[in-house]
């Protein structure tokens, strides 16, 4: 459907990747870990290795959760747009095909100290 308007009303997105200085938005959410009120929005470079970003940015963000120390990035289950996805965390975002504004959910079955 399209908006009802008196004149042509084109789509004008303001969040394209060209606005992010060579970086891209990536969202993260830890399933069933609701201590963190909402998914995180981050802005890594597509050429960064996923594991480097996870250790430098995501691990400190989730550190307050009692399960955080036990998270092993090579064992978590990844979900993108409601489908399981294999991520080689040793490779970069672009090598893994992770694009601008992708939301990556990770599941850690068996770990549910706070919200079980």
């Amino acid at each position: 459907m399209a908006v009802v308007a008196l004149k042509p009303y084109p789509l004008r997105p303001v969040d394209g990747i060209e606005h992010y200085h060579g970086d891209q938005l990536v969202y993260w959410s830890w399933d069933h870990h609701l201590m963190f009120a909402a998914p995180f929005i981050t802005c890594p470079s597509p050429s960064t290795r996923v594991v480097d970003f996870l250790e430098a940015t995501i691990r400190p963000l989730i550190a307050a959760d009692p399960d955080a120390d036990r998270v092993d990035w090579t064992c978590v289950e990844w979900i993108r747009d409601h489908e399981p996805i294999a991520i080689d965390v040793g490779k970069s975002f672009s090598e893994n095909g992770i694009g601008h504004k992708d939301l990556l959910r990770f599941r850690t079955p068996g770990m549910n100290t706070l919200c079980g």
Binding site: S29, L34, A37, F40, I41, H82, L103
Partner: peptide, 30 residues
């Protein structure tokens, strides 16, 4: 506890996505 991560916002209501699935209060709604 300080959550210094920035939040994903809804493109429509612009709320941070703090809401859970209507039928599962243990999982955020994506």
């Amino acid at each position: 506890f300080r959550n210094v991560g920035l939040a994903k916002l809804c493109q429509c209501c612009q709320m941070p996505c703090v809401f859970t699935e209507p039928d599962d209060p243990t999982l955020l709604c994506h």
